[in-house]
Design a protein around this nucleic acid. Structure first.
Length: 565
RNA sequence: GCGCGCGUAGCUCAGUGGAUAGAGCAUCUGACUUCGGAUCAGAGGGCCAGGGGUUCAAAUCCUCUCGCGCGCACCA
């Protein structure tokens, strides 16, 4: 980012007014795929029409009118490109200096200064076991939290628990019919899960069970004390379970205000809707009609509320309580219509701030051919996956590094890291076929590959048994090998990667970057000796800077970086 | 039927307007008697689903078609 902007500045000054109006110089500067062509390039093609000149001529004229500053080694016009070669020792010094100075803040910007972003993520339904299907919203939301916080935002992490609604009626009915106090005491989560699955199995042949569930929820919503007590108990058991898994993943929340929290805030929503004349009766239910979208159902014909009603109340509350610049709902793609409807209703209500609300959708995790479904019992428990992952990491450690201290701790870091990385490395809209072999792959494109690179670099540092010197004391001009320069350029790019991850709400950009960075570092590592070389001090500084960037990148994904593994 | 999303190497995926389309896995061939082989170097493998269009330039934008997934009223 640092050089890109300076190059943009040079080009901008060299261009006539009319050209500048037509292009965004800041974004047009690119990095050539082949470093032999240059370090940065200005493509002049898009200006050919505006200036009515051939691109090569424009590039040449820009080149002629630029007096290259000392840090530009030379410029070259190739085709319609003006290619810039940065003076190498300057580039190395700038990048290493900046990483040394900024440390864990390297790669951040302050775009979020003074702004609040609310991120609604994870949001499991209570009385349901934590299945692998929950992991995507959980790790995406957590990574987005880290990214936005890194960019200076104040972030509120909200776990919008699914602790209200007809589903609550379902397990109340299931418990009344088949529940067993002893089993519930012995293993609450297992008992709740079995009740849940049994309800859905039996409801397929006895649809009247669904009616009973709706009736039970209606009574719960009206405050039936017995049902409320049962509800509270199930809720607490569930949260205890969730928190154990979150702790393993290193995730925390600022609020557990779930759907039940909005129970007493819905009448106001209904009032506003009525006041504005938006509420219509349809087959006994209350709806809001929308343009270009199916109507939004606000109240069931039995008078009880729905998902959308509670989301409207939540949206209102979040605006009034947090005054956010941005609200992100990290919820699966199947709910796109729901959010479109809720946002459209808010717009009709005159809530212009709804423009700040975004649904961050993501693809489905499928198991074999089917989408995972807790209802059908077709499910992999998240904890089983985490156990499998750490167990496997432990086995590899026992085999390759039996002398390691804290083996269990490191196995947890690596195993969890592998799982987190796997679920963050794909574009969020892609469906993921869950497959044990792929999720537990620790070679090639994987979290452990990145962690391994980090640990090995750390091991070199220990082996060298020398302090990493401040850049001012180094001869940065001594780093001239192509592998060294490629690594420096890769490190320089980190800030723009973080910025694009923020802009696209796409942590995978960071995961992809880390894989590339490690590949470039490993290429350097294998090509050149570090300890004992005559440029050892410079190479150690380069290695240390790489470690900083890997650590920062992993942090933004919510993954820990082990010193040894 | 309507809406949203996806379609790139055998498989899993990057690349979303620029220079010769890239990785990982799998397959094959190799690697320093000194820094960790969870690594690295190399090989083979592509009508970027298909047609039409816009542009100096298209995997990328528009349009149509095909295939797959998801959603479309009292679940969340």
């Amino acid at each position: 980012m640092m050089f890109r902007q300076r190059i943009a500045g040079l080009v901008q000054e060299a261009l006539p007014e009319e050209a500048i109006r037509h292009i965004d110089i800041g974004t047009i500067i690119e990095i050539p795929a082949d470093p032999k062509l240059g370090d940065y390039a200005f493509p002049a093609f898009s200006l050919a029409r505006v200036l009515k000149k051939a691109p090569q001529r424009i590039a040449q004229e820009v080149a002629d009118s630029i007096t290259p500053p000392p840090w530009v080694e030379r410029m070259e016009v190739v085709g319609g490109y003006l290619n810039f070669f940065i003076e190498k020792s300057f580039m190395v010094r700038e990048v290493l200096q900046r990483i040394q100075d900024e440390g864990e803040a390297y790669g951040s910007s302050q775009t979020g200064q003074g702004r609040t972003v609310v991120i609604d993520f994870s949001s499991p339904n209570i009385a349901k076991p934590v299945a692998v299907g929950l992991i995507r919203t959980t790790v995406l939301g957590h990574s987005l939290y880290r990214i936005f916080a890194h960019q200076g935002y104040h972030v509120e992490r909200v776990n919008h628990l699914g602790d209200w609604g007809t589903q609550c009626g379902k397990w109340i009915v299931a418990y009344e019919l088949w529940g067993d106090e002893e089993r519930l005491k012995a293993d609450p989560i297992k008992e709740l899960f079995q009740l849940y699955v049994r309800f859905h199995q039996e409801a397929e042949t006895q649809p009247e069970l669904d009616d009973r569930a709706r009736e039970a929820f209606r009574r719960l919503e009206q405050g039936d004390p017995e049902l409320l007590a049962l509800w509270r108990r199930f809720r607490e058991l569930s949260i205890k379970e969730f928190e154990r898994v979150y702790a393993r993943l290193g995730i925390e929340f600022d609020s557990y205000a779930g759907e039940a929290f909005y129970e007493d805030k819905m009448p106001r929503v209904l009032e506003i809707l009525t006041e504005k004349g938006l509420l219509k009766d349809s087959e006994g239910a209350a709806i809001v009609e929308l343009e270009d979208l199916p109507p939004c159902l606000i109240k069931k014909s039995d008078g009880s509320t729905l998902y959308a009603t509670r989301d409207l109340a939540a949206a209102l509350y979040r605006w009034e309580h947090y005054r956010p610049s941005l609200v992100l709902y990290v919820v699966g793609a199947p709910q796109q219509l729901h959010f479109k409807q809720v946002f459209a209703v808010l717009r009709l209500m005159g809530m212009d701030w709804v423009d700040r609300y975004e649904h961050i959708a993501f693809g489905t995790i499928r198991l074999g051919d089917e989408a995972m479904s807790t209802r059908r019992g077709n499910v992999v428990f998240l904890e089983d996956l985490l156990d499998e992952a750490t167990g496997r990491a432990r086995a590899i450690i026992d085999e390759r590094n039996p002398g390691l201290a804290d083996k269990d701790e490191v196995a947890e870091m690596v195993g969890i890291g592998a799982v987190l990385f796997y679920f963050l490395m794909f574009n969020r809209m892609k469906d993921i076929s869950f497959d044990w072999a792929a999720a537990l792959n620790y070679e090639g494109d994987s979290g452990p590959y990145v962690q391994y690179t980090y640990a090995r670099a750390g091991s070199v540092l220990r082996r060298a048994d020398a302090e990493v010197l401040p850049v001012a004391e180094l001869n940065t001009g001594a780093l001239t090998e192509p592998e060294e320069l490629a690594l420096v350029k890769e490190l320089a790019r980190f800030g723009s990667v973080v910025a694009s991850a923020e802009a696209g709400r796409e942590p995978s950009a960071i995961a992809r970057y880390l894989l590339e960075l490690c590949r470039v570092f490993n290429g350097f590592y294998h090509a050149h000796r570090i300890v004992g070389s005559d440029v050892m001090a410079e190479r150690l500084a380069l290695l240390d800077a790489t470690r900083t960037v890997i650590r920062n990148g992993l942090y933004l994904l919510g993954i820990r970086a082990p010193e040894e593994m």
